[in-house]
Amino acid sequence: KELVSALYDYQEKSPREVTMKKGDILTLLNSTNKDWWKVEVNGRQGFVPAAYVKKL
């Protein structure tokens, strides 16, 4: 599985998104959309802005 690192804090703005803190390591589930990537963090799945994470 592919991992990404959070470059910035992000506070979810809808139920489809997830909150992350800078430095968090997230499991990348889907990166086909260039703007929003689906990740899993702390057992929750949702979307984060692609520009806020980088692949490890």
Results as ranks from 00 to 15, higher is better:
residue 40 E to R: 07
residue 51 A to C: 15
residue 24 D to K: 03
residue 32 T to N: 13
residue 53 V to Q: 00
residue 24 D to I: 04
residue 33 N to T: 06
residue 18 V to Y: 04
residue 7 L to R: 08
residue 52 Y to C: 13
residue 18 V to E: 01
residue 27 T to E: 10
residue 43 G to R: 04
residue 32 T to Q: 13
residue 28 L to H: 00
residue 2 E to V: 15
residue 27 T to D: 04
residue 40 E to M: 09
residue 26 L to V: 08
residue 39 V to F: 00
residue 9 D to E: 05
residue 56 L to Y: 11
residue 43 G to L: 05
residue 11 Q to M: 13
residue 27 T to M: 13
residue 52 Y to L: 13
residue 7 L to T: 07
residue 16 R to C: 15
residue 9 D to R: 03
residue 41 V to N: 11
residue 48 V to P: 01
residue 28 L to W: 01
residue 23 G to K: 03
residue 10 Y to Q: 00
residue 29 L to Q: 03
residue 38 K to R: 12
residue 32 T to L: 10
residue 38 K to G: 05
residue 7 L to Y: 04
residue 13 K to L: 10
residue 36 W to A: 02
residue 17 E to V: 06
residue 6 A to N: 00
residue 44 R to E: 05
residue 46 G to Q: 01
residue 36 W to E: 04
residue 7 L to V: 09
residue 52 Y to T: 07
residue 50 A to W: 02
residue 22 K to E: 07
residue 26 L to R: 01
residue 28 L to R: 01
residue 12 E to V: 06
residue 46 G to C: 03
residue 39 V to N: 00
residue 42 N to W: 06
residue 20 M to T: 03
residue 49 P to C: 04
residue 14 S to T: 12
residue 25 I to N: 04
residue 56 L to W: 11
residue 52 Y to I: 07
residue 5 S to D: 04
residue 4 V to K: 01
residue 10 Y to I: 01
residue 42 N to H: 11
residue 29 L to F: 04
residue 3 L to V: 09
residue 53 V to I: 10
residue 33 N to H: 12
residue 25 I to H: 05
residue 55 K to C: 13
residue 25 I to K: 06
residue 43 G to T: 05
residue 17 E to G: 14
residue 52 Y to E: 02
residue 13 K to G: 09
residue 30 N to A: 09
residue 49 P to E: 02
residue 46 G to K: 02
residue 47 F to G: 00
residue 49 P to S: 02
residue 41 V to R: 13
residue 35 D to W: 15
residue 52 Y to M: 13
residue 43 G to F: 05
residue 9 D to I: 02
residue 39 V to Y: 01
residue 52 Y to Q: 05
residue 40 E to Q: 09
residue 50 A to M: 05
residue 31 S to P: 06
residue 19 T to F: 05
residue 51 A to V: 10
residue 49 P to Y: 03
residue 55 K to Y: 12
residue 56 L to E: 08
residue 14 S to Y: 07
residue 21 K to C: 11
residue 47 F to C: 13
residue 33 N to P: 05
residue 49 P to F: 04
residue 45 Q to R: 11
residue 46 G to I: 04
residue 4 V to T: 05
residue 53 V to S: 00
residue 19 T to V: 03
residue 46 G to Y: 04
residue 51 A to Q: 11
residue 16 R to F: 14
residue 56 L to N: 07
residue 12 E to Q: 14
residue 21 K to A: 09
residue 31 S to H: 09
residue 21 K to T: 09
residue 19 T to S: 15
residue 8 Y to T: 08
residue 3 L to A: 06
residue 18 V to P: 01
residue 41 V to L: 15
residue 3 L to C: 13
residue 23 G to S: 04
residue 56 L to T: 08
residue 32 T to I: 09
residue 45 Q to P: 06
residue 18 V to H: 03
residue 24 D to M: 13
residue 43 G to W: 03
residue 14 S to W: 06
residue 48 V to F: 00
residue 32 T to R: 11
residue 6 A to S: 05
residue 47 F to K: 02
residue 30 N to V: 09
residue 6 A to Q: 00
residue 12 E to Y: 05
residue 23 G to F: 06
residue 25 I to L: 10
residue 40 E to A: 09
residue 30 N to D: 15
residue 32 T to K: 12
residue 36 W to L: 04
residue 54 K to W: 09
residue 42 N to D: 12
residue 22 K to L: 06
residue 50 A to T: 05
residue 4 V to L: 12
residue 22 K to P: 03
residue 51 A to K: 14
residue 27 T to Y: 14
residue 31 S to V: 08
residue 7 L to F: 04
residue 4 V to N: 02
residue 30 N to E: 15
residue 29 L to A: 02
residue 48 V to N: 00
residue 4 V to Y: 15
residue 5 S to G: 08
residue 5 S to P: 02
residue 23 G to M: 03
residue 25 I to D: 02
residue 18 V to T: 06
residue 33 N to V: 05
residue 15 P to H: 10
residue 31 S to T: 12
residue 39 V to I: 08
residue 49 P to H: 02
residue 47 F to W: 15
residue 5 S to L: 15
residue 18 V to R: 02
residue 48 V to A: 03
residue 24 D to G: 04
residue 44 R to D: 03
residue 54 K to E: 13
residue 6 A to I: 02
residue 15 P to T: 10
residue 38 K to N: 07
residue 54 K to D: 08
residue 26 L to E: 00
residue 6 A to D: 00
residue 12 E to R: 15
residue 33 N to S: 10
residue 46 G to S: 02
residue 30 N to R: 07
residue 10 Y to P: 00
residue 6 A to V: 09
residue 47 F to R: 03
residue 33 N to D: 14
residue 44 R to P: 01
residue 47 F to L: 09
residue 14 S to K: 07
residue 49 P to M: 04
residue 23 G to C: 07
residue 53 V to N: 00
residue 21 K to Y: 11
residue 33 N to C: 11
residue 2 E to P: 11
residue 28 L to D: 00
residue 34 K to L: 10
residue 9 D to T: 06
residue 9 D to N: 09
residue 5 S to C: 15
residue 43 G to I: 02
residue 8 Y to V: 11
residue 48 V to R: 00
residue 7 L to I: 12
residue 29 L to I: 14
residue 51 A to W: 11
residue 7 L to M: 10
residue 39 V to C: 05
residue 3 L to R: 09
residue 37 W to P: 01
residue 3 L to S: 07
residue 27 T to I: 15
residue 54 K to Y: 12
residue 2 E to G: 10
residue 42 N to C: 09
residue 10 Y to N: 01
residue 24 D to R: 03
residue 44 R to T: 07
residue 30 N to Y: 08
residue 18 V to N: 03
residue 44 R to Y: 06
residue 42 N to F: 08
residue 47 F to I: 07
residue 5 S to M: 15
residue 30 N to M: 09
residue 8 Y to I: 10
residue 6 A to G: 03
residue 16 R to W: 15
residue 44 R to C: 06
residue 5 S to A: 15
residue 2 E to I: 15
residue 22 K to G: 04
residue 1 K to N: 12
residue 45 Q to H: 09
residue 42 N to M: 09
residue 38 K to E: 15
residue 18 V to D: 00
residue 39 V to S: 00
residue 1 K to E: 11
residue 47 F to T: 03
residue 30 N to T: 08
residue 8 Y to H: 11
residue 46 G to L: 04
residue 21 K to V: 10
residue 29 L to V: 11
residue 13 K to W: 05
residue 1 K to H: 14
residue 8 Y to R: 14
residue 33 N to L: 09
residue 19 T to I: 03
residue 30 N to C: 13
residue 44 R to A: 06
residue 28 L to G: 00
residue 47 F to A: 02
residue 15 P to L: 10
residue 40 E to K: 05
residue 12 E to D: 05
residue 48 V to Q: 00
residue 43 G to S: 06
residue 29 L to W: 06
residue 15 P to Q: 10
residue 55 K to V: 13
residue 8 Y to F: 13
